[in-house]
Design a protein around this nucleic acid. Structure first.
Length: 359
RNA sequence: CCGGAGGUGGCAGAGCGGCCAAUCGCAGUUGACUGUAAAUCAACCGGGUUUUCCCUACGGAGGUUCGAAUCCUCCCCUCCGGA
């Protein structure tokens, strides 16, 4: 029986803390599904350290290595897998996380995916069409400077059908327009090329073996779900929520704590060691605001804090919007002080008999 | 007490007689998102159930005007400089 536990929810709901305690109880290992925690040296700002750490400071033992951290003997994978200056994408994530999860399973442990990045989670669990279509750096450079209108025109010329498929918001989104053009222009290889020594992710192996028989080779474009199609596979998705005001309070407090923990110095160190301000801005949220601070656009810590809190509120809202559409999630309100035991009960049921989503 | 600058929607900050319920930004709300996703993009954002409709609004009270957030008078308050 193949089982995969997923903990999802917006930032500051305590996903990691919960996942750690569940891992201990159910003999699991975590896989972080977070688009920023996977960067090396972005530690405080991305909250790699579990919140409990501050309280139980002395009891915690943390070990770090490329690709994972270990907190009190529990492995957290997909931390520190990429240099912060480089760009890591969903494609990389699916590939890496997939093999990590496979390894956890081979060791007979329960894989627990801790997800804050909706797109990554979706790609990992369900696959993403066009994931095999690579980035075309030259094209992107060429298109990036253009005004939206030009991009719109260009896409319409390439494929009016594609243009019509897009919604009104995406039609004004340069990033989406560029990717759409990129996909149209790319001539996909029959099967994605692997670099030397690279192992094809399970999802892709499946995709290839499953469809290769049919004449229509274009199917490589349609990434087959990594796990959803596997018989006997069993997900359990646990979602964490909190009333809006409480969530904002938690976020605000966290920002204060992180400043206390040295988040500003972390940013300075990153910058001193060559991480550009521009790149920091791309990384968003705390690092984006911190970039402004280092540049002197923001002068006081008070201001830094306020701006950061506001940005993160917005981020949490976007996550909530995304996760609303996520299917088959068992949602728990973290302000219910029985929620942990409720979660544990659910997992026990799931482990033993398998939970019927319909129930 | 004198001189100077101001008081505008949650914040910040434009507007300086009609096109102003009031630019822009932030915050807030909702949403989009098929390789940058902590990114990127969209809509809404005084109240009234939608409205080319009504109401309450630009410190307060009066006034001038067909018409004022915008002009005048007085009052209250804030900030800077001088006593």
């Amino acid at each position: 029986m193949l089982k995969l536990l997923v903990i999802l929810g917006s930032t500051s709901t305590g996903k990691t803390d919960l996942a750690l305690s569940l891992a201990k109880k159910f003999n699991g290992e975590l896989t972080s599904c977070d688009s920023r925690q996977l960067y090396k040296r972005l530690d405080i700002g991305t909250g790699k350290m579990p919140d409990q750490f501050k309280i139980l400071n002395s009891k915690f033992k943390i070990e770090k290595s490329d690709g994972w951290w270990e907190v009190n003997g529990i492995r957290i994978w997909m931390y520190d897998v990429c240099d912060a200056a480089k760009q890591y994408t969903v494609y990389d994530f699916v590939k890496d996380a997939d093999s990590v999860i496979g390894d956890i399973r081979e060791r007979g442990k329960l894989p627990i995916v801790v997800g804050g990045t909706g797109l990554y989670l979706k790609a990992l669990l369900e696959g993403l069409p066009n994931l095999a279509c690579p980035v075309d750096e030259k094209l992107r450079k060429e298109l990036e400077g253009l005004p939206v209108e030009a991009l719109q025109e260009r896409l319409q010329k390439s494929s009016f059908k594609r243009w019509e498929e897009m919604n009104s918001s995406d039609r004004q989104n340069p990033r989406r327009l560029i990717r759409a053009i990129e996909i149209l222009l790319s001539s996909l290889p029959a099967s994605p090329k692997l670099q030397r020594g690279e192992r094809r992710p399970a999802c892709q192996r499946l995709a290839l073996s499953g469809r290769q028989g049919s004449k229509k080779q274009t199917s490589v474009r349609n990434w087959i779900p990594a796990y959803a199609g596997m018989t006997g596979f069993n997900f359990l998705k646990i979602g964490l929520t909190a009333p809006r005001e409480i969530l904002y309070q938690r976020i605000d407090k966290r920002v204060v704590d992180r400043i206390d923990q040295g988040m500003i110095d972390e940013a300075k160190r990153l910058n001193d060691s060559g991480l550009s301000i521009k790149r920091m801005r791309q990384l968003g949220l705390e690092y984006g605001v911190l970039a402004d601070y280092l540049e002197g656009k923001i002068t006081s810590q008070e201001e830094l804090m306020k701006i950061m809190q506001g940005k993160i509120h917005g981020f949490a809202r976007r996550q909530i919007t995304w996760f609303k559409k996520e299917k088959d999630v068992f949602w728990f309100d973290i302000t219910d002080n029985m929620f942990i035991s409720k979660v544990e009960d659910l997992i026990v049921k799931w482990y033993d008999k398998g939970v019927n989503y319909a129930s």
